[in-house]
């Protein structure tokens, strides 16, 4: 299993644990903008990140020289996804309770980072989805 896949899956597992802990906090009555962080850690941080990792590992080879497409692009995708998600998880509850310019602009940046990570994933994986 390539290093990028291992890193994606292990980071996904950390997101899963964080989401489940947030789930407990929500069950105990915490609100304050935590629910979106919970859902996105679970669906984007865990499930989608796990899929990104498995696709990078197991989908048909891109070429003999670059069997998994561009590894650098894959690492950028990883960095953008997790920085965007972390920023969101940390600042969305703040923006929900005490909105301010810093957290507001940070959420815009977080949105751009997460979207960009998806774009990089599709660019890197599109040509590996092909008929044999």
């Amino acid at each position: 299993m390539p290093l990028l896949t291992r890193t994606l899956i292990k980071t996904g597992m950390i997101c899963l644990i964080l989401a489940l802990i947030l789930g407990i906090a929500l069950a105990l009555g915490a609100t304050n903008g935590l629910f979106p962080a919970y859902i996105h850690l679970l669906v984007f941080g865990w499930i989608t990140q796990l899929i990104f990792g498995v696709v990078f590992w197991m989908f048909p080879k891109y070429s003999l020289e670059q069997p998994r497409g561009s590894e650098a692009l894959g690492w950028w995708m990883y960095a953008l996804l997790n920085s965007g998600l972390l920023m969101r998880a940390a600042l969305e509850p703040i923006q929900a309770t005490r909105p301010n310019a810093f957290s507001g602009w940070a959420l815009v940046l977080s949105a751009a980072l997460q979207f960009a990570s998806g774009v990089l994933f599709v660019i890197n994986s599109w040509k590996r989805v092909r008929e044999k």
Binding site: G104, W105, L107, A111, A112, G118, W126
Partner: peptide, 21 residues
């Protein structure tokens, strides 16, 4: 599914940005 991922993320990014500004 990749195309829906892109569209879904784009819509999500717009909504999140709207929460910020």
């Amino acid at each position: 599914s990749f195309l829906y991922l892109l569209l879904g993320l784009l819509f999500g990014a717009l909504i999140l940005a709207e929460k910020g500004l």
